[in-house]
């Protein structure tokens, strides 16, 4: 019995050491290269640290969402990308995700997950060809998504709301 308990203890220590080693391995690349994806306290900090020239921010913002972004993630390697997450002040739920990236396949809006896309249409967004999608999210609430290319950058907005409010936000990001 004593041997068995010692075995469990020894195994638990091994697992703990392995977890520690994995954490160090995970931290190491960020120490070597500052440009991989990480959290930033502000949009200004992203521009200053990564040198991303244009960060697309809406000038129209509904009162139901909190400003500044609750979370900002950005990277300049392996490609430029910025993700801003906005939450509803009343319940702290993620309600809007704005992302821009140099690669079109980059889709960081998993927190606003569509369960059903009911409509998918091309939309003329201030002269740009955008793709507008409407549907429902996990809790059956209405969700919408819009994406378009702007000077080689794919911009993508996903929101827990009908498309009308989303389009207003998207239009306010363009001159």
């Amino acid at each position: 019995m004593k041997k068995k308990l010692f075995g469990f203890l020894s195994f638990a220590v091994t697992v703990a050491v392995l977890v520690g080693m994995l954490k160090v391995l995970n931290w190491l690349p960020t120490a070597i290269d500052q440009s991989t994806i990480r959290k930033y306290p502000s949009i200004e900090a992203v521009g200053a640290k990564l040198g991303i020239r244009e960060i697309y921010v809406p000038s129209y913002f509904p009162a139901t969402l909190g400003w500044p972004p609750a979370e900002i993630l950005a990277q300049s390697k392996p490609f430029e990308a910025v993700v801003m997450e906005f939450k509803r002040p009343e319940d702290g739920e993620t309600a809007l995700i704005i992302s821009q990236s140099a690669r079109p396949e980059f889709a960081p809006d998993m927190k606003i997950r569509f369960t059903e896309v009911t409509e998918k249409i091309p939309y003329a967004l201030k002269g740009r060809e955008a793709l507008l999608e409407a549907g429902t999210c996990n809790d059956r609430s209405p969700c919408s998504r819009i994406s378009w290319d702007e000077d080689g950058t794919r911009i993508r907005l996903a929101m827990q709301s009908p498309p009308l409010e989303l389009i207003r936000i998207a239009e306010s990001m363009l001159r």
Binding site: L25, N26, M110, K111
Partner: peptide, 10 residues
Amino acid sequence: SISFRLGALL
């Protein structure tokens, strides 16, 4: 997702 990756062990 990116947020999961940020909190991942590796």
